[in-house]
Each structure stands twice: as structure tokens, then as C-alpha cells.
Design a protein around this nucleic acid. Structure first.
Lengths: 149, 149
DNA sequence: CGAATCGTAATAATTGAAGTTACATGAAAA
DNA sequence: TTTTCATGTAACTTCAATTATTACGATTCG
């Protein structure tokens, strides 16, 4: 299966939008993410549906952040994207007749549920502001290194 | 992408093999798993490579368990299958130039690593014997329910 | 008006798992 | 020894899901 990289993508886009005042066009976002403007619109559209970003048509149009960076969590973004399946491994058949297979599913489901819950808790505790801070840290570091060399 | 259900599949197969003395053919395993004998050989072959099962050709041939159920963990099976990717979500680009994207990757990777570590620890603590016990429990339960009705 | 921009439907490309076909190899049975 | 049954494996097809592309409509600003 191909991996779903939309969460990673929208985070990248949102951080670029946060660094900039004024809207960014789908075209501009697509270029910095090495993808296609239509893909950007499709994905960002899901965030607009829940009020995280705003889009405007026409001249001077484009995408802007419509929420406080401190209040938007990765969990919310994951939900806005439709809560895509987290795992690439899973049961062969979700509703088997066979008691053996039911036992296997039950044990595996327990393990997967626990891991997914942990991941979502982590997602709840990371905001866009945290990510922006992480970027600022790396940016400062990079400037230091550049000066030293 | 399609989900990788091989771990689920081999567990199902191994438990059926444990319930039975004497070898089971790929054909028989394929039937009870609603799949194809070649797929069974391909997948079980990986377990044979690490000594968990044994295969024999010709008349009276087939697949048998070659290890103590108490010593085989889900983790070992996952490894025998080549440690397939656990997550269906991931970064768009694993080695980005862009500092923004590096920051995003770093934060997401942390979360994914933690969740994967938890899952693998869980896998370490479940043996085939545990699964067989879970099946026995369900089987007994099912017999009780059938008698009562 | 007209150029820029989003909105969206329809379709193709891509990727990786699973399924299928075909045939070689080896072992037990007749 | 010949036949039959089973695995071993390569090559290819199918399938499912994400991502990319094309095309065109709708809106807004200059």
C-alpha cells in the first residue's frame, strides 16, 4: 500500500503559511511541497471544512491560517483528514466465522488499539505552535552553523 | 495500498497446525484461510527460513510446527516476515532539504517510533501458546453456549 | 471585461500486497 | 521404476489505495 502522507504534507504547508503574512496560493504551496496544486486544494479543503484554514478566490486569493497555532493539535488535523487508517498491517478478515481466526484477531486488535491510542494521545499533545517552535530552534541552529563555517 | 495481513494469516495457520498432529498441506491451509496454496508456501517459507515451521515434499508431506509454542512470539513472526512497515501514515519525504519539513518529520517520527516500540513490546509478550490458550477459552465458551441453547 | 485563483469531477499513474499460472524438484506409494 | 502428491519458485496478473493530472466551471479583484 502507498503510505498516506497528507498529515505530513499539511503540516509542512501550515508552517510555511505561518511564516508568511498574506495568503499563499495552491500553486506556491504545491511548488514548495513538490506536488500538484489540485492535490493541495483537495487536502487543504478538508482543513477549511473544519475552520483551520481559509481560502479565497480571485486576485490576491489563496490560503491563510484561520486558527490560533496554539490551539490546533495534530490530532485535530488527523481527524480533519478523515482519520485515515493508522496501520499498514492488520487482520485478513475482520468478521471471521472461524474461532481460531477470531482469537487471532482479538489478540492483534488489542495490541493495535493500544498502539493507536498512544499515537493519538501524542498527537493531542502537539500543537502547530510546538511545531513552529521546533522549526525556530532548527533555524537558529542552522544560522549558528553557517556562521561558524 | 492494500494492508499487509500476513502476520494475521500465519497466526491463523500456525494455530490450526497446533490443533492437529501430522502435517497440513498448503492446499488445506489455503482452504481454511480462503486463499491460494502458492501464497501459503510463499509466506510459510519465510517462517521455515528461521526454523519456526518445517516443510516436507511428496506423499505425507506438508507443513508442521518445528518450535515450542511457548517460545515463539509475535515479534519473532513479525521479524520473520521481514519487519514490514507498521504504519500506513508517514512522511512525504524522508530526507528533505527544507528545514520546515525536517522539523515536521522529526516530530512525527518521534511519535511513530514511540507507538511502534509499544506495539513491538506487546508483540514480544505474546507467544503462540498464549494464542492457543485464547482459542481454547473461546472454544470452551462456544461449547457452553451451544449446550445452553 | 479579463486574468488569477479556487472548486471539483473524472481519469490516469504509481505502489505494494495478494492471487494465479506454470513448471521444476523431490519423496513416498504403487 | 513409474506414478502421484507435495513443495519451491519465477513470472505475471489482479486489486486496492494514494497521489497526480487534465479539464472546466465559478468567483473575485484589477
Amino acid at each position: 500500500m502507498k503510505r498516506d502522507s497528507r498529515l505530513s504534507s499539511v503540516l509542512h504547508a501550515l508552517l510555511h503559511m505561518a511564516e508568511q503574512d498574506g495568503p499563499l496560493t495552491s500553486e506556491a504551496l504545491a511548488q514548495c511541497m513538490h506536488t500538484n496544486p489540485v492535490v493541495v486544494r483537495r487536502t487543504m479543503g478538508l482543513l477549511r471544512d473544519v475552520g483551520i484554514v481559509h481560502s479565497a478566490k480571485g486576485h490576491t486569493g489563496g490560503w491563510t491560517i484561520a486558527a490560533d497555532l496554539k490551539t490546533v493539535t495534530l490530532r485535530q488535523l488527523h481527524e480533519a483528514l478523515g482519520e485515515p487508517a493508522v496501520f499498514a498491517i492488520g487482520n485478513r478478515n475482520e468478521t471471521p466465522e472461524c474461532l481460531v481466526e477470531q482469537s487471532v484477531n482479538s489478540v492483534l486488535d488489542d495490541a493495535f488499539s493500544e498502539a493507536e491510542a498512544l499515537l493519538l494521545r501524542r498527537f493531542e499533545n502537539v500543537t502547530l505552535a510546538d511545531l513552529a517552535a521546533e522549526f525556530a530552534r532548527r533555524h537558529a541552529q542552522w544560522r549558528t552553523e553557517r556562521t561558524l563555517s
